[in-house]
């Protein structure tokens, strides 16, 4: 199958490559770029393990062709680590509140939480639960994930206030 040239920004870095038009974004990230944070749990857009941020929206990268992402700006869980290599706020809160077990849903969950808190910096517990309902976790029962996201919201808001 003939390949097409794609160019996109991933975690702040400009990348390009050749891909079949049918290639899924998740495979391009994982196999062509070696960005293995986004995981594959279903390939049918139900589980959310492959969630990435695309131009400021959460998308399931198993349901987006890389061709559709041409020119887009993508953020994966790898891009949420602080520049000095320390854990970003949401990552740290997941660790602190035991918001993960096997870790397979975690990259998608954290990436989704990152976008959720941009959309709604002050969510109620209900809003968090609704906001991450597109991401399945088989291990944690969500209780500590919700706690972690609420704690991250509080910390991010406090930091914002302090900066003002």
């Amino acid at each position: 199958m003939s390949k097409m040239h794609v160019k996109l920004k991933v975690n702040g870095r400009q990348v390009e490559g050749l891909a079949e038009p049918r290639m899924l974004l998740v495979h391009f990230l994982r196999e062509e770029l070696g960005i293995t944070g986004p995981h594959i749990g279903c390939e049918t857009s139900h589980c959310g393990a492959c969630t990435v941020d695309m131009d400021g929206r959460s998308v399931k990268s198993c349901t987006v062709f890389v061709a559709q992402a041409n020119g887009a700006e993508i953020v994966t869980v790898e891009g949420l680590t602080n520049p000095d290599g320390s854990l970003g706020v949401i990552q740290e809160k997941f660790r602190e509140h035991h918001g993960l077990q096997c870790g397979f849903c975690t990259p998608g969950m954290i990436t989704r939480a990152h976008r959720l808190l941009q959309e709604n910096p002050n969510p109620t517990e209900e809003e968090v639960r609704f906001g991450i309902a597109g991401n399945l976790c088989r291990c944690t029962g969500y209780q500590n994930i919700v706690k972690a996201i609420m704690a991250a919201a509080a910390e991010l808001n406090a930091a914002k206030e302090a900066a003002q």
Binding site: T36, Q91, F104, T106
Partner: peptide
């Protein structure tokens, strides 16, 4: 005790079988 596994997992640095190349 906080889990030692989580520093890797929260950054997408786990190594699952489909990551083996």
């Amino acid at each position: 005790r906080k889990r030692v596994e989580d520093v890797r997992f929260t950054q997408g640095k786990g190594n699952y079988v489909d990551d083996v190349k």
